[in-house]
Write a protein that binds this DNA or RNA. Structure first.
Length: 271
DNA sequence: AGTATAACCTGTCTGC
DNA sequence: TGCAGACAGGTTATAC
């Protein structure tokens, strides 16, 4: 569901509302997730100190713990008063203001992990972050750092979605970044022309930033923490547009499969 | 070592 | 109307 922009938006919205609050009680549906969810009871009495984002994870820092959410494909985090639990409500935090944070996830591809700060002083050291690559909107993502990792026999579409290289880019924004860069999704990373590398680098940053400023993409599931929608989907050039005509060159937009995922691209202007 | 595939789940849509 | 199959924004263990 959410890629970097959507997760960043949720983090920002929650930061302004929930930091400084104390957790009164917690709820867990008991449903099975890919990693077991346990220990939430120990959050009782903990105050939320700050929120972080790494890749597509949201980290809640409390006095003694790191509480880490991943929304998977269909997860969302809602914040409000008297939220009602439904079939797919899996975790709820009741805070001292009388409000609740509710994690819902029909497919249960998401995750909720709790780590003790006595074991991990810095959230960046958490084991789930071990193999993550560079944050594309951070200052450390320079053109030089991008060139350093821009190698391999993968196609460029798979590369962009490989979180061990550059993290946070999912299927939608990978397609949109390649379109804006006029690059074929089939292009092998080692064969990317020199002149295209700068363009690709800039488009990674531009597309993700544009998505954030447009409130993220709302396709089926994604909503903000107050239930409202983003509007980035109105700015898609190729994603979900197979059979339509490219607005730049009037070529045909096709859907193909790469590594088990749909890729949408203009057969004419992406070479 | 690096890359591709299968598996984890439920809901929705398409075509017969 | 029913049903099978494909597909969906992600990650990761396993296989090659």
């Amino acid at each position: 569901m959410p890629e970097l922009p959507e997760v960043e938006i949720i983090k920002r919205e929650l930061s302004s509302q929930i930091v400084g609050s104390t957790i009164n009680s917690t709820f867990y549906s008991g449903k099975k997730f890919k990693r077991p969810i346990f220990g939430l009871d120990s959050l009782k009495g903990q105050t939320i100190i700050s929120l972080k984002r790494r890749n597509k994870y949201i980290v809640f820092e409390t006095n003694d713990y790191w509480l880490v959410f991943h929304l998977g494909m269909t997860g969302n985090l809602l914040f409000g008063t008297s939220l009602e639990k439904g079939k797919h409500s899996h975790v709820m935090l009741n805070i001292d203001s009388g409000q609740q944070l509710l994690f819902q996830d029909p497919r249960r591809f998401g995750s909720v992990d709790l780590y003790s700060k006595s074991n991990y002083k810095n959230y960046l050291m958490l084991p789930i972050f071990n193999k993550l690559g560079i944050e594309p909107l951070s200052n450390s993502f320079t053109f030089e750092s991008f060139i350093d990792i821009l190698h391999g026999k993968q196609n460029i579409k798979s590369f962009l979605m490989d979180s061990s290289k550059v993290c946070g880019i999912g299927n939608i924004y990978a397609c949109e970044i390649l379109f804006r860069s006029s690059l074929s999704p089939f292009l092998i990373v080692d064969n990317i022309p020199e002149t295209s590398k700068t363009i690709l680098y800039m488009n990674i940053k531009n597309v993700l930033s544009l998505a954030i400023s447009n409130g993220g993409s709302s396709i089926s599931d994604f909503v903000h923490t107050n239930g409202t929608s983003g509007k980035m989907q109105d700015f898609y050039n190729v994603y979900g547009k197979n059979g339509e005509i490219c607005k730049i060159c009037h070529g045909l937009i096709e859907r193909i499969k790469q590594n088990g995922r749909s890729t949408y691209y203009c057969i004419n202007c992406q070479k």
